[in-house]
């Protein structure tokens, strides 16, 4: 299977700190992949390198087999790579409807049109509305984003990323800061995404990770520490020692049984 997203010897340094250390990684189409690691392991930095927010110090990034290392963020987005941010990056003055409408018009390559009023294409508006409704934002689609409650903003952060139907979607702690009761909703949304979309989920909650992931990478100190299927990683003694801690991992040896914790 060809990789939709891959890296070769990717390195990123901040001054003396190596935040991404020689990472070679590949993601097949339709992947359900979790990227885990302790705080400061370099997960967000890795996503930033993949999405073009940061340029690598060395190494290469491939998207659909093409070398995109020097591509700016918007070109990678147009090539089918979407992401969410750990900290919401929204347009506070927009409404959710405008936000998704904008994301779609850019995805359709109509973003530079200045002669046409926005929202005249029924197909695009319909797509925006159904995306919003699917993500539980239908009732607030005409409100100002900056005034929405945090949980709704978090959903919109995901909606922006999924609206253009990307080939690869990188989710950087989508449930971060969301109250316990609403986390389920976010996981359900992620679970309902099209099977052919390759997903990478960064998440600290092992419960969610093992319910979601078929494959897992563990990042420690910027380097790939362990890679494998969910159960391999769960059984790996090094992971138990270094990262997960003996007691917690026991709950997850059988990923299917789900919520033991």
């Amino acid at each position: 299977m060809t990789a939709v997203l891959a890296t070769e010897h990717l390195v990123r340094r901040f001054g003396g700190l190596t935040a991404t250390n020689n990472v070679t990684f590949s993601l097949p189409a339709g992947a359900r992949h979790a990227l885990i690691g302790p705080n400061g392991a370099g997960k967000t930095t890795f996503v930033n390198l993949l999405s073009g927010v940061l340029a690598p110090t060395s190494g290469r990034v491939f998207l659909g087999g093409r070398d995109v290392t020097t591509w700016p963020a918007h070109m990678r987005a147009r090539a089918g790579l979407s992401r969410t941010f750990q900290i919401n990056q929204l347009f506070a003055e927009f409404t959710p409807l405008e936000t998704i409408g904008l994301a779609l018009s850019e995805a359709h390559g109509e973003g530079a049109q200045f002669w046409r009023r926005v929202g005249t294409s029924r197909a695009v508006v319909d797509e925006a509305v159904s995306t919003l409704e699917r993500l539980g934002l239908g009732d607030v689609m005409e409100e100002r984003v900056g005034s929405l409650p945090y949980g709704k903003q978090r959903l919109l952060e995901i909606a922006i990323a999924v609206a253009p139907k990307p080939k690869v979607l990188l989710l950087d702690e989508p449930a971060a800061g969301v109250p316990e009761g609403e986390r389920e909703q976010i996981l359900d949304i992620v679970a309902a995404l099209p099977a052919e979309m390759a997903l990478v989920l960064i998440e600290h909650d092992m419960d969610l990770v093992f319910r979601f992931a078929r494959t897992i990478s563990v990042l420690v100190g910027g380097a790939l520490f362990v890679e494998g299927t969910a159960s391999e990683v769960a059984r790996d003694p090094r992971v138990r020692q270094v990262y997960l801690g003996e007691s917690e991992i026991d709950h997850h040896i059988e990923p299917a049984t789900g919520k033991t914790a």
Binding site: P72, A73, H74, L90, A92, E106, P164
Partner: peptide
């Protein structure tokens, strides 16, 4: 409003 997000949606 947010050039980081703007770039990320392909603008």
């Amino acid at each position: 409003g947010n050039s980081l997000r703007a770039g990320a949606i392909g603008i």
